[in-house]
Design a protein around this nucleic acid. Structure first.
Lengths: 342, 342
DNA sequence: CTGAAAGCGCTTACAG
DNA sequence: CTGAAAGCGCTTACAG
C-alpha cells in the first residue's frame, strides 16, 4: 500500500512539515529526528507523490521527447534512436526520466505541444526535427520552456540546437573523391524540402566548385533516403549521356540502392566510387563494403543532454552547436588508401 | 501564461465545479454554459494540469516503460526498439503517453520499480525482459499495477506477457535444414543464462531428435548475440574433428560472424548452410543474403499494447501469448527453393 | 442545471 | 529545531 507523508509523520511522531524538510534536504532538522524519520521512510518504502510534488514545486525532473514533423519510422529511426539513447543515458544519470509524447491521437494540425508540456509540467524537452515541422513546435520553442533541438534550428529565449555540420559532411565526401582521383561526381539527395538534404547539397555544390570537379545539373537526383529511391536515382544517372564515376548518396540506404542498380545493369561495381552517409550496421556488410560519412551520434546525444540541463538550470541560454562528421573509409570507393595519389 | 481552472471559471462567470464537469464530460451541464466555457478554454488554450488531475483522479494516461535486467544497448536494441515503437503507436492512439524510466542513477540493486511507478502514478507499464532481472521487477509484477512483459514471464494478478514462440523458432530452422537436405547441424547460442537462448536451444535439441539429424555435443557453442562472438564460435566449430554443414545462429549478427570466420578460413561459404535469427536490415545485404527466422515485432508490439490496455481497464487479467515466428528464405542456406528435394 | 466546500499529497513561509 | 496553516490546481459528492 502506498504511504503518504502524513502517515510517515504520524509513525515518526513528528509533523508533516518536518518529514517534508527531510525529504527536501533542509538542514534545520535535528540529527536524531532525521535519522528516525529516514529509517521509517526506508522501512515502508515511502516515495513522495510526483503529482503532489510537481503541483507545488515547479520542478518535475521529467523531460519531454518530441518528434516534430514527419519522421519516417520515428522511434526506430537509425540515426535518432542512437541520439536519443545517449541523451537518455546522460540525462538519466542526472535523475531525469523521459516522457515520450504520443502524437497518434493528434496528428492533425491542432496538436499543441506547448499545452502538453504545460500539462505535464516538464522541466524541458528535446525536439527531434523531421520534415514539415508544425507551427506549434515553434510556439513551444519561443515559450519559457527550455528546448534543445536536434536537426532543427530553435531560436527561443531558452532554446538551443545541435546538429552535424552538414556542409562538412559533403566536404568530406567531395574531398575523398578528389583525393582518390575522381573528377566526375554525382549527388543523390533526399526530398527537396528536407533541411538536412538541402544543407548537404549546398555543401556539395560549394566543394565541387572549390576542387574544380564536374557535376552537370542532371547528375543531381533526389530520393527519399530509402533504398528503393536510391535504386531509381542510380538508374536515372545511368541513363544520362555521360555516366558519373563517383556518387555521393546522402544516406547509406540510398547508396545500397545505387549499388544494386549498378549491378543489375550488368556493370562492374568496382568501376564506381560510392560514398554513403550514416554508417548503419549493414554498411560494412555489403559488397563492396561501403565508404560512408558518419555522424557522431554519441556526441550529439550527450551534448543535447548537457545543453538542455544547462538551459533548465539557467546556466546558459540560446546556444547552438555543429558537430563534426567522420569519414569511414571502406572499399566502395576504390582505394583502400585514401590520400594516396594514383 | 498558463491558465488555471479558476481563471477560466471567472472569465466564463461560472464556478470551478462547472468548468471541471465540462472538462470531464459530465452531462448535467447546460448546453449554453457548456459552449461558452468551451469557447473560452479554447481561446486561452487551457489544458488542465496533469499534476492536479492525477492527484485527485487515479488515472494518468501515462504508461511506464522499463528495461529490466541487463539489455545491451537497451534503447536501440534492434528487436525491442521496433516492438516498443509499435507499442507506442498503438497506445498513443488510445491517448497514452510513455514514460521511460532512467535507471542510470539507480543501477544498483536497490532500484525500486514499484516505488517509481507509484511515484508517477502510471496506469500500467511494459517490462522488457533482459538478462538477470532484478527482484524488484517481480515485486512490481505482483503489485496492483497492470504490467505487460515482453520476453519475460510475468505472473502477477494484473500482469500478462507476450513473446515469440521460441520453440517454434528452432523448429523452423531445423525443419528448413531438413528440407534442404542437411543432416549435420550446429547451434550457436547466446549466453547460457539467457532465457531466450535456453528456449531456442531446447527447441533445437527437440527438433533435431525428431528429424533424426546429427549434432554432437561439441557442435553446441555459445556467444553473446554479437558478431565477434559468432566469429569465435564458428572458429571453434571449424576446429572440431568433423565440421557441420549447417549452422543455426540465434542472432543475425552471430551468423554474420560465422560467415566471416568461414571466409577467413579460406573455405567456400556456399558449402555451408547458415540460418540466422532476427532479420535485421543487414541480413539481406550480406553475401550471400542470410536466411533467417524473423520475429513478428509489429504484432508483438500491438498485442502488448492491446493487452495492457485491457489489463488497465480490468477487461482481462493474467494472460500470456506466444507469437509465431516467420522463416525468411534467402541464399545463405544453399537452396533458393526450400522444400525442393535435392 | 449550478455552486460551495472538502480533499488529493505535498511544500513553504512563518511563528514559536 | 519543530509545527500549524495556507496553498498548489484540480474533482467529486452533496445540497440547492
Amino acid at each position: 500500500m502506498k504511504m503518504t507523508i502524513k502517515e510517515i509523520a504520524k509513525l515518526a511522531g513528528v509533523s508533516q512539515a518536518t518529514v517534508s524538510k527531510i525529504i527536501n534536504n533542509y538542514d534545520d532538522v535535528g540529527q536524531k529526528t532525521k535519522e528516525r524519520v529516514l529509517a521509517i521512510m526506508d522501512e515502508y518504502g515511502y516515495r513522495p507523490s510526483y503529482a503532489a510534488q510537481s503541483l507545488v514545486k515547479k520542478v518535475t525532473k521529467v523531460v519531454g521527447v518530441i518528434y516534430a514533423g514527419h519522421i519516417n519510422a520515428n522511434f526506430n529511426h537509425p540515426f535518432f534512436v542512437e541520439v536519443v539513447d545517449m541523451f537518455k543515458k546522460t540525462l538519466g544519470g542526472e535523475g531525469y526520466d523521459l516522457l515520450f509524447f504520443s502524437n497518434e491521437k493528434f496528428h492533425k494540425a491542432d496538436e499543441n505541444y506547448l499545452q502538453r508540456c504545460q500539462h505535464y509540467n516538464v522541466d524541458g524537452c528535446i525536439i527531434i526535427g523531421g520534415e514539415q515541422v508544425e507551427p506549434s513546435i515553434y510556439e513551444l520553442d519561443q515559450s519559457t520552456i527550455p528546448c534543445i533541438g536536434v536537426d532543427i534550428e530553435l531560436t527561443g529565449p531558452h532554446s538551443g540546437y545541435i546538429m552535424t555540420d552538414n556542409i562538412q559532411v559533403s566536404s568530406m565526401a567531395v574531398e575523398h573523391f578528389y583525393l582518390t582521383g575522381r573528377r566526375e561526381v554525382a549527388f543523390i539527395g533526399g526530398e527537396k524540402e528536407s533541411f538536412v538534404s538541402r544543407q548537404r547539397e549546398a555543401g556539395f555544390r560549394e566543394r565541387i566548385k572549390a576542387y574544380g570537379l564536374q557535376a552537370p545539373e542532371e547528375w543531381f537526383v533526389y530520393g527519399d533516403f530509402f533504398e528503393e529511391s536510391g535504386y531509381a536515382c542510380m538508374k536515372e544517372l545511368l541513363r544520362s549521356e555521360r555516366t558519373p564515376q563517383a556518387i555521393f548518396a546522402i544516406s547509406d540506404l540510398m547508396a545500397f540502392g545505387a549499388m544494386k542498380a549498378i549491378k543489375d545493369q550488368g556493370l562492374d561495381i568496382h568501376d564506381f566510387a560510392i560514398i554513403g552517409c550514416d554508417d548503419i550496421t549493414a554498411a560494412k556488410h555489403v559488397e563492396p563494403p561501403l565508404t560512408t560519412i558518419k555522424q557522431d551520434k554519441q556526441k550529439i546525444g550527450r551534448m543535447a543532454a548537457f545543453i538542455l540541463k544547462d538551459l533548465i538550470t539557467g546556466h546558459i541560454e540560446q546556444t547552438s552547436l555543429k558537430v563534426d562528421p567522420e569519414l569511414v573509409v571502406r572499399e566502395s570507393c576504390g582505394s583502400k588508401k585514401p590520400g594516396v595519389m594514383r
